[in-house]
Computed example of a mutant assay.
Amino acid sequence: MDTTSRTDGELTYRDATEADVEALVPLIESAYRGDSSRTGWTTEADILQGQRTDREGVRAVIATSGSRLLTVARDGVLVACCQLEHRGDAAYFGMFAVSPALQGAGLGKQIIAEAERTAKAEWGVSEMHMTVISVRDELIAFYERRGYRRTGRMTPFPYGDERFGVPQRNDLEFELLVKQLD
């Protein structure tokens, strides 16, 4: 795993380390859960309560072989992150979080492009995969505008496992979205 940093304009990208865990958990939580998430547009607060992740979950992504958690800083301040995991001919994109105060200004688009570039350059993959809660129409539309396509392939939401949150509705499932990187 390449842990050197790469600067692209005003953003600096580097792989997360154990020292980043304490800052990453609240960043991820703030983008999806609780009142702070309502500042941005990626909130899941109306469909899920409880946690989005925890220290152990973030540590697992950092420590797993073939996985990396890319951190994004602006002026030395952590503003976003995303998970990349090598899965054969594809890379999985997940744990994507942008500070709610910075959402809607194009930062997410830049980070997705960097994640795709990184996955293709480092692993030679031809596809990027992600899963999105199927009722998140606005979020899915955002990814479709980035070239991802819905596959109709669903996996169940882990009801009863509060590590993934406390569902506020009974129709949650994940849909696989795929983008060709060639």
Rank of each mutant, 00 (worst) to 15 (best):
G57S: 11
D15E: 13
Y143P: 02
R38F: 09
D46E: 13
G104T: 10
G152T: 07
M154V: 10
G94M: 07
R145S: 11
E162N: 06
R6W: 09
A80N: 12
Y32H: 03
A45G: 02
D8E: 09
D35Q: 04
E122P: 00
R55K: 11
D161V: 00
M130T: 07
M130G: 02
E85H: 12
P26C: 04
V79N: 01
A23V: 00
C81L: 11
R136W: 07
T42L: 03
E175I: 01
D75I: 00
Q110M: 08
T155V: 11
Y159T: 05
C81W: 06
A121H: 13
I28S: 03
E10Y: 15
K120F: 11
G152K: 09
N170P: 08
D182I: 05
E10T: 13
T71Y: 14
V135A: 14
R59A: 13
L78T: 04
L172A: 12
K179I: 04
E175S: 13
R33E: 04
R68H: 05
D15F: 04
G108S: 05
E173M: 14
T4K: 15
Q49F: 03
E22W: 07
S65H: 11
A23T: 05
T3W: 14
E175F: 03
E22R: 15
L27G: 08
E127M: 04
T64P: 00
L139N: 10
A119Y: 09
R38C: 02
D46F: 00
S30K: 14
L48R: 05
L176G: 10
Q110F: 06
L27N: 06
G104A: 09
A63L: 13
G34V: 02
E22M: 03
E85D: 14
I133K: 00
Q180T: 15
G108F: 03
D46V: 03
G57T: 04
M1I: 05
A80I: 00
R145V: 02
C81F: 01
L11V: 04
K109F: 15
R146F: 02
K179H: 12
M95V: 08
S99Q: 08
N170W: 08
R14E: 01
